[in-house]
Amino acid sequence: MNSCQVLRDAPVRKVALFGGTHGNELSGVFLVKHWQEDGAEIQRPGLEARPFLANPRAVEKCCRYVDCDLNRVFDSENLGKELTGHVPYEVRRAQEINSLFGPKGQPEAYDLILDLHNTTANMGGTLILETSRDCFTLQMCHYIQDALWPDSCPVFLLEHPSLKYATTRSVAKHPVGIEVGPQPQGVLRADILGKMRKIVQHGLDFVQKFNAGQEFPPCTIEIYKIMEKVDYPRDKKNEITAVIHPNLQDRDWQPLNPGDPMFLTLEGKTIPYEGETTVYPTFVNEAAYYEKQQAFVTTVKEKLSAKGLKVS
């Protein structure tokens, strides 16, 4: 097959909008609650859009999670775990979600899940994909990027030989994460809310047009592909000894060249980036990743081609 072919793909009828996968990322929490009261803005002919609060207990406590990160437990081990004895709340919840919107990998699963997140990093409105081989989501990203132009809308590809995420949205046939920042945890900003809302609108518009038979010609999009996680410098007791350098802070998606400042120790010493090639950092200084031993992740820019697309 080559990229000039037009791919015939099944209609996307069952769509879910997840908010509160992380309970303190408030844009999605409040949008979903709002849509549950008044869903007019997410209704489109030819599809069912279901707003859903993924981790209600974490939302209630306004924390990321109660027992463990809901966005990392959608693997076969946790989804198949027997629910006896002490099972973390999020594992139980993952199984509920899997039965409501999955089962993951099965034909009955939802067609599309848009999972709404916030970050403390200056990532703007970012779309997150799990695979480079899904022409539907690539075309959707291309459509959203076009619609938002001249505002940028980076696409982050979580495809890596060893880093596996097992995200909540992965129960759907086409999973897409929407990550908007910067916004502190537990805070709701009107500008970030507006940005997220717009992305969702364009995403649903795309689905509606696709279902209605519009053909999307082959396209190429630029994506940032995950390379590696970079941890903070730490002492023997595992305490962080340096912070993100001011030159790197807020510079998500900007090139980081060999020798560029990366961290600043509390003694005032600059620690440079010592890689051999230019990378594009993202999730720079994300609050939730301190415990994951992660100061930022590096990415490389790549171009991906999507085949033409039309509903079958």
Partner: peptide
Amino acid sequence: GPQPQGVARADQLA
């Protein structure tokens, strides 16, 4: 401020 909870920014620290 502004600084998110759980985040240490070099500028605020300085």
